[in-house]
Design a protein around this nucleic acid. Structure first.
Lengths: 196, 196
DNA sequence: GACGGAATAGAACGATCGTTCGTATAGTTC
DNA sequence: GAACTATACGAACGATCGTTCTATTCCGTC
């Protein structure tokens, strides 16, 4: 029972790594097991189905996202500082070494947005929570007087997420070194407009 | 020679449709051929390899994008009207019925951004051209006096593309009916800021 | 209307997919 | 240390993958 949990974690770690490059469907039990020095059937027994493996890979990724972005941001003061902390951590997250192929949550979203099933349901909920988290942060910034009173906090959240997606695209597809500067400039413009 | 070109087009049309939902790798010669009432080998002979099929699917998609977005926009007057035309057409494009799974260029970008090869090379170039096209449009708007003189036109292009990606995400993953309004609001804010 | 090449079909290939099953080993518990 | 269970393995399953080969059918040209 102890040993099993350890290997399961080792499997998921490598699975996240592979899935970030090849996609959740491109992730294969055969290659995953050989890379880990396990047998296909031995690895398979931990999950029972590929669907379940994919689901647990997503859950592991969300956990890491919360550890890397959400929790640290929550230890920053409410209002503008927290918003800035989220954004900074978010950019870091996009370059997290545990996902050499870039944010798995974005890749999986594009991959599964048209395939009904538990994977899509889970992803939808996860992305909704990310949206809500930023909106809530903006709401606090309004209450703290950092942002203007009539700010549409959900529009603000959309704008921040769009910047993150734009960064991901420019960084990973176009491989443009200016991606970071572009995302930051867009963010600063957004912040200025939220205050004015 | 005539007949062959016709079927090839029929194949690519359905291939784009399937790939937009299942991805370029999820697109399979077996299912594609059965859906079209062709034999696997007969279909395969048109392309010679799956790589080539994927490449031609991408090329067909880019052609359609240019017909749907680029060319109509070019018939609008330079400056702000053309920028607005691009944006409007772009939103239409994201809902183009020939791609029931959403913009294939976005899906393929996420799928192939870590897989070196001709598909990625082609996608990179295609996305770069889309970026340049908007930047060029913004440059003209500056010259026409519609946008302020010191506008960073490439930053503007990044911002527009980010909105398009945000729309895609909110529309297809979150299935949020407000996606359209959010994208438009973000765009108007961007336009106002480009003029001021 | 025969000829020639293009277009399509059919069968089969080795490889790999996810999955199942029976068995051996390793770990935990008493 | 014995008994038991969790963990892992090896072999095999049917299905499907991309691809190859050969044979057939279609169509435009002389």
């Amino acid at each position: 029972m102890r040993k099993g949990a350890e290997t399961r974690e080792r499997i998921l770690d490598q699975a996240v790594r592979l899935a970030s490059r090849d996609g959740l469907e491109g992730l294969t039990i055969g290659t995953l097991s050989t890379e880990l020095g396990l047998s296909k059937s031995g690895l398979f027994a931990h999950f029972g189905s590929k669907d379940e493996l994919q689901l647990q890979v997503l859950q592991a990724t969300v956990e890491r996202f919360e550890e890397t972005v959400i929790h640290p941001a929550l230890s920053a003061p409410r209002g503008e500082p927290r918003i800035r902390a989220v954004f900074e951590r978010w950019l870091d997250w996009e370059n997290n070494p545990s996902m050499p192929g870039g944010c798995l949550l974005i890749a999986a979203a594009v991959e599964f947005d048209d395939r009904p099933g538990p994977q899509r349901d889970y992803l939808q909920e996860a992305h909704r929570r990310r949206f809500e988290f930023i909106a809530k942060g903006a709401r606090m910034a309004v209450e703290a007087g950092h942002f203007r009173q009539d700010l549409d906090v959900e529009q603000f959240s959309f704008d921040v997420l769009a910047i993150a997606l734009g960064y991901h695209h420019m960084h990973r597809m176009l491989r443009d070194p200016k991606a970071d500067a572009r995302a930051r400039a867009a963010f600063e413009r957004l912040m200025a407009e939220a205050k004015a």
